[in-house]
Design a protein around this nucleic acid. Sequence first.
RNA 1: GCCGCAUUCGUCUAGAGGCCCAGGACACCGCCCUCUCAAGGCGGAGAUCACCGGUUCGAAUCCGGUAUGCGGUACCA
Length: 502
Amino acid sequence: MTPDPAAPVRVRIAPSPTGPLHIGTARTALSNYLHARHVGGTFILRLEDTDVARSTLEFEKGILDGLHWLGLDWDEGPEVAGEPARGPHAPYRQMERLPSYAAAAQRLLADDLAYPCYCTPVELDADRKAQEAARQPPRYVGRCAHLTPEERREREAQGRRGALRFRVTEGVVAFDDIVRGHVEFDVSNLGGDFVIVRADGTPLYHFTVVVDDSAMEITDVIRGEDHLSNTPKHILLFRALGFDVPRFAHLPLILNPDRSKMSKRKSQTAIDDYIAQGFIREALVNYLAFLGWSPGTEEDVLALDEIVKRFDLHAVHKGGAVFDRERLEWLNGQWIRRLDPDDLVDRLRPFVEAELAAGRIEWMPTDEDLRSLLPFVQERLPTLGAIGDLVGFLWVDEVDVDATTLVPKRWDVATTREGLAAAREVIPKAGEVAFEADELEPALRALAEARGWKAGDLFMAIRVAVTGRTATPPLFDTLVALGRDRVLARLDHAIEALDAPG
RNA sequence: GCCGCAUUCGUCUAGAGGCCCAGGACACCGCCCUCUCAAGGCGGAGAUCACCGGUUCGAAUCCGGUAUGCGGUACCA
C-alpha cells in the first residue's frame, strides 16, 4: 500500500501559478528539496495550473525564477524558456496532462465510483444554506447520485453538462503522517461525494494531485498542514484508482503575528518583495528552514548544504510558527557579512542602480568604488537595499545640510563655524601627500586637542557637513571615499549654510 | 456547526521521566569597545513548560479531560 521504505524517494513541489511565489510555497519547496537531497532522492516540480481563471504565465515564470533564485533546483520539471522538460514523466504542467485525468475519470465512471452531477450552483447553494439553517454540516445531498441512464441522457439533451462527483464510501481512513503521527478521519465527515471534474471538463485539485502523484511515482507528499484535512479524500481516490498511497508529511503553517495562517493581508508574503528589499537567498533559505524545524544543536547560521546534511523530516514540528521579520533581518546581516567581497559587489549593483533610477543618487559608482567601501560598509548592511541610506551621499553632487543638525550637541554656532573652518585648513595639508585615513585622523585629532575641543564634537560637525547626516560609516573612511575636492567643497558649503540667516 | 490539528520566554526554538526551580537565538535593557552608526564582547530582564486531574519515589517530558488558537469543510489550490 505505502511505498517500499527502501524504494528511492521521490518528492515534489506543486505550485499553482495563481500569484507570486509565496513564502509558504517557498518553505514547502525547501522542505521537499531538503528531504530529497538528504536521502538522495529526486525533487520534482509540477505546475498545478488547472485553475485556468487565475493562472497566468507571468506568475508561472515568477514562481520558477523565485525557486531558482533560492537555489532550489529540481531534477524533473516542465520545459521553460526553450529548455525541454526534464524527467521521464513529462509533461509537468497539469493543463498538458488533461488526457490522463480524462482516462482516470473514465475508469471511475465505468466502475461507478464516480457519477455525473447536474446540480446547478443555485441548487447547491440552496442546499448549503438549508443545512446551515438546520445547523447541519454542509454536505452534498446526493441528488444526482443515483440517476438512471435515461435521466442522465435527458439532462444532457437539455444541454446540461455534468460535473463528475466521486462517491465517498463509509468507514475510517487512517494514515501515519511523518510529522504528525497517526491520524484518523471518519469518512462521513468529508462532506459527501465531492466534485473531481468541473462541468467544463477541467479536473479539480483533489483529483489531479492524486493522478499525478501516482503517475510521477511520488513516494512522499510533503506539504502544508492546510492539506491535512484533504488527505483522506486523496487516500480514497488513490484506492479507488488502484494506486499505491504515498507517505504524507504535513508541515506546520507559517503564521501572521496574530497566529492566523500567513496571508498577504497581514504580512509580506511574496518572495519577490523580500528580494527587492535586499534579502539574500542564503538568509531566506536559512530562515525558512529553521521555521518549524531545528537541527537540535545551537547552530543558527547554516548554509543550505549544511542544512541538507542535518535535515530530518521526523524532527519537524507540529505547531505553527510566526514569521519574525526581525530575526530574518538579523540573519540577513549575518549572511551579508559572510559574503565574498566581489560577490557582494555583484549583488549590490542592482540596488545602487535602483537608487539611481529612483533619483536618490545622481550617478553610478564603479565596481572598484563599491569594492573599496566594503571594509566599512559590509558589516553595516542589514539588507542590500540599505546601501542607499548608508552611503548614498557619496553619489550626489551636493548634500543638504541645515544649520541645526550641523551644530553638535555640545557646541554652538560660532564654535561649529570655527571648527569647520579649521578643518577646512587642516584637511588639505594633512592629505597632501596621500588622502588617506591614516593621514587625516591624527591631524584632526591634533586640531581638536590644540583647540580644547572634544574630538567627537569636531568629527560630528565635519560628518554632518560632508554627508548631511549624523549616522554614517567611520568619518575618515568616508572622507577618503568622498575625495579631497568634494570634502573641501562640502565644508565650504556648510560654513556658508551656518552664516546664512535663519 | 461539524471534523481535524496544535499549545515551552514577546518571537523562533533546545528539551524525548531525574542532567531543567528549563538552555540558545532574535527583539529589549545595561556595560565594554568607540568619531556617529553598525558590528563585536560581556551582563540583565523575560517561560509557575496553556489549565485541571492522574501515573510515578520523581513529569515540560507518559495518560485523561478542559480551555484557547488554528486549519479544513468550494465545480480554489
